[in-house]
Amino acid sequence: MTELPMAPVKPPARLISVTIDGQQVEVPEGSTILDACNQLGIDTPTLCYGDTLAPANACRICVVELEGARTLIPACARKVEPDMVIHTDSERVRHSRKMVIEFLASSVDLSITPVAQDYLRRYDGRPERYGPPAPADPERDHKRTGHHEPPDGQTAATVHSPAKLDNDLYVRDYSKCILCYKCVDACGEQYQNTFAITVAGRGFDARISTEYANPLPESACVYCGNCIAVCPTGALMFRSEHDLRDAAAWDESRQTQTDTICPYCGVGCNLTLHVQDNQIVKVTSPDDHDITRGNLCIKGRFGFQHVNPQPRAPL
């Protein structure tokens, strides 16, 4: 009998035992502390962490205290080691988490990032204590690296800058950007490999940019929308969603999500159609399906207009 045509079986991973908040847990070698926390049902805040992407470990809101370590460590990125003793709700942990969410809420527009409000409440964050937010800066894309005007401290510096509406498919509003790197990773080596966007500049002036901050239609962008799919704050958004929000008509409670298969090429990508009022308003792909792992191309992501009622001429 022929063997079943399956992938070669890998030996099972060794189990590693760690202690988190006094509870012992065994997880497979190679798991992260976040995995172990999840196994114990410990709710760990995350912002830059994405299931399909390697941990960027940039936001640092998931930090935990490891006994014996000088500093806190990121739960999302740090792999478990035998006999680690970890605290996820110590004073130090709570403090750093509070400061991270305050830092972000005082400098970024988190108005459509629901978890941000949860985290602020959970850690008693008071972003207003840094002062009133500074206004949007139209020159943010062209800061001289390693140089800034001395602040007077009377307003809190922000990343606010005018939203970029330079094409019909999606909108980039970097006032909402927490610089989690996910869009860059999705556009780059981890999935799309188009490298249309990058982190440019440095420090607080670092921003997501095309080359020379050119408009998207002049960039290498292929409009796969895989960056939108991973954006946790709505900085990147379907034009359709943006316009509905602008018209105060975006209403997720009235939306259905249906999984189906893309009608175009023969790869068979799974689509999740977000439908409001019998109109497709957004298309995503399930993160956990191994054909797409959440990714699509321009046709799968945006090529649905022909079934939306408005432009479809009745036969």
């Binding site: 640092r60 830092f103 972000l104 400098s107 610089l179």
Partner: peptide, 8 residues
């Protein structure tokens, strides 16, 4: 600019 605690 990579991590929030230092960047902000």
């Amino acid at each position: 600019g990579q991590c929030v605690p230092c960047r902000v």
